[in-house]
């Protein structure tokens, strides 16, 4: 599978969600791109959660449909100037992680009997990974291909020397 295709990006999104939700790593374990994306996007997510706290508190993410609507509104606006770069693509994964955590918290708040550490169900995480991959491949697939793909362009840019 090409590293610019929907399935590849969906697998990256799925792996990052597993990392954010502290699920056991998939088998086989994450590859080099996934490991690097976990590290970089986690750092960005921590920074964004702190910087964006007032705005994030105003976002209502009580369902996967609401998460999709917020995601699409935010990324469309973020990329509205037509610029794509690896840094902005990393923020898309960080946003995915932020919305997944907000959705999990909203579900726990709605049902206090739920364990606070309860995971999102598999269908929900799959839907999230799907709409993230749809955005990235449709809006940035060409740019990613022209810039070396995930396995060369992204790794070359972010792997520590």
């Amino acid at each position: 599978m090409s590293d610019c295709e929907f399935g590849y990006v969906q697998a990256l999104a799925r792996d990052y969600l597993c990392h954010v939700l502290q699920r056991p790593p998939p088998r086989p374990g994450p590859d080099r791109v996934s490991r690097l994306l976990r590290a970089v996007a986690s750092a960005v997510q921590r920074d964004a959660e702190r910087t964006l706290r007032p705005s994030l508190d105003d976002l209502d993410v009580a369902s996967v449909e609401a998460a999709r609507a917020v995601f699409q509104a935010v990324v469309r606006q973020e990329f509205a100037d037509g610029v794509v770069n690896w840094g902005r693509l990393v923020t898309v994964f960080a946003l995915q992680g932020i919305l997944a955590k907000k959705l999990l918290r909203a579900r726990v708040a709605l049902d206090p009997d739920l364990d606070r550490d309860r995971d999102l169900d598999a269908d929900t995480t799959e839907e999230i990974a799907c709409f993230v991959a749809e955005f990235i491949t449709s809006q940035a697939g060409g740019w990613i291909r022209q810039n070396g793909g995930w396995e060369h362009g992204f790794v070359q840019k972010f792997e520590p020397r």
Partner: peptide
């Protein structure tokens, strides 16, 4: 139309992404 909070998030993420991209570019020089 996106709500104010969504616009603010988008602009902040754009800033964070561009800054990250710039810093990595410097590191790779």
């Amino acid at each position: 139309a996106p709500a104010e909070a969504e616009i603010e998030c988008a602009l902040q993420l754009r800033r964070i992404g561009d800054k990250l991209n710039f810093l990595q570019k410097l590191l790779n020089l």
